[in-house]
Amino acid sequence: MTTISMTVNGKTISENVEGNTLLSSFLREDLRMTGTHIGCDTSQCGACVVHVNGEAVKSCTMFVIEADGAEIGTIEGQANNDGSLNVVQQAFQDHHGLQCGFCTPGMVMSATALLKDNPKPSEQEIREYLEGNICRCTGYHNIVKSIMAASGQDVSKIAAE
């Protein structure tokens, strides 16, 4: 067992962990923050994306020991301080950017990381950025639209309804 410390959504955490504990398992099992999801075992689906020191990382493909000392952000920490949905979350709700909700935490975390680096991404930039986030429900249309809307772009011209 190794003792590690980190902040998770701004809160300081200190725990003993086994060497082979993945960051995703640590969040889900040890901290009981189950918003981070596991959808594959080959590091592709992106349901587990969290922020490590502000950067998008697949938490199922990083050992928690390597996050020792880091600042971790998860879906549970994204809402505004008053509990209301933040801009990205609200855009996903407004534009029906989710259906079953399973890939959604990873999508929101990826989208947030994208918008930090690229505040007004084009449709194509969003689609390329989401290469590592798989959604089976939405056909991506409303996810891309939500992210464009979250960035303040006019999405009213994007097809239908």
């Binding site: 990382v57 697949k58 493909t61 990826s110 990381a113 290469e131 590592g132």
Partner: peptide, 9 residues
């Protein structure tokens, strides 16, 4: 290479 999250690691 890969996707953004993979490129960060």
């Amino acid at each position: 290479i890969g996707d953004p999250a993979v490129r960060n690691r």
